[in-house]
């Protein structure tokens, strides 16, 4: 059985349909990214799966249980990084991590977790005094301190500088190597591309595409655009595989100084996908 199984999930807020029937399956050990613009329904979906919000319809199973009714043992097996929280401002990083570690049966060592998120230098600082990105890293530390089997991350890298983001990516890869299943939401394409084994694009409460970063939205089959300029004339051809065409051009002794081969980037695909469904 998959770690996350969702069928026809729906959520309505006072007549507003935020999530309109989505299906998801995430097998054990996978890093799955939910990608989508603001208001797409990412937080709503993730918080239903965390047991924070009630679903209006559909089926959801997380680690074999219904998140709406699952108990303490289930919560000990998940890790949650919420989209926003500003609690515990007057505690130090170490105090807060140690406090939360105490709720779990087999927590990671406090200093190790703080080191994993790169906050060792700030371990004695009050959380109030941290920058937004550092604050976010505390959230991540608190999400992983209980050694979760399944980790939820809702826009975890908002406010990170590029170096911190790379470090965070390494951490996620390390967790995935250990076998942690990860469901992450993001609106950073390069983050989904760098981390996810599979991803789904959510727009207006529906999944508009699902696949691997390489195949999403027919990207793998989209072929390539080959352009070159010969004797002052611009040529452009759309082909499934550019090898044959280029071999032919070489044989014809064409002028290839301006030759370009382009494939749709994940960004092109993504923008097309959410643009179609806006």
């Amino acid at each position: 059985m998959d770690v996350i199984e969702v069928r026809g999930l729906r959520k309505t807020y006072r007549g507003h349909d935020a999530v309109r029937g989505i299906d998801l399956s995430v097998p054990r050990g996978e890093v799955f990214a939910l990608l989508g613009p603001n208001g797409a329904g990412k937080t709503t979906t993730v918080e239903i799966l965390e047991g924070h919000r009630k679903r209006s319809g559909g089926e959801a199973r997380v680690l074999g249980e219904d998140p709406g009714t699952a108990g303490r043992d289930w919560r000990a097996r998940i890790g949650v990084v919420l989209q926003d929280a500003d609690d515990a401002a007057d505690l130090t990083v170490t105090e807060m991590v140690r406090h939360m570690a105490g709720f779990y049966p087999d927590p990671r060592p406090v200093a190790e977790v703080i080191d994993l998120v790169g906050l060792t230098e700030k371990s004695k600082a009050r959380i109030r005094t941290l920058s937004g990105g550092q604050r976010r890293r505390v959230d991540v530390a608190l999400g992983i301190v209980g050694r979760p089997e399944l980790l939820f991350l809702d826009e975890p890298t908002t406010g990170f500088d590029p170096a911190a983001r790379r470090q965070f990516w390494d951490l996620i890869r390390a967790l995935a190597t250990e076998g942690t299943t990860i469901l992450l939401t993001t609106h950073y394409l390069e983050e989904a591309e760098a981390l996810a084994d599979r991803l789904a694009v959510l727009s207006g409460g529906v999944i508009v595409a699902e696949g691997t970063p390489a195949t999403l939205g027919g990207r793998g089959a989209a072929g390539a655009k080959v352009s070159w300029r010969h004797e002052g004339v611009q040529h452009t051809e759309q082909v499934a595989d550019p090898t044959e065409l280029i071999r032919k051009l070489v044989a014809e002794d064409a002028d290839l100084t301006t030759l370009t081969v382009t494939r749709p980037t994940l960004e092109d695909t993504y923008l097309t996908l959410i643009g179609d469904h806006r």
Binding site: H52, A76, D87, A89
Partner: peptide, 17 residues
């Protein structure tokens, strides 16, 4: 306050009663 600043929500994601 705990409901507003996320204290309660964070705790609810852990095995605390």
């Amino acid at each position: 306050m705990d409901r507003e600043d996320g204290t309660l929500k964070r705790l609810h994601g852990t095995p605390i009663t």
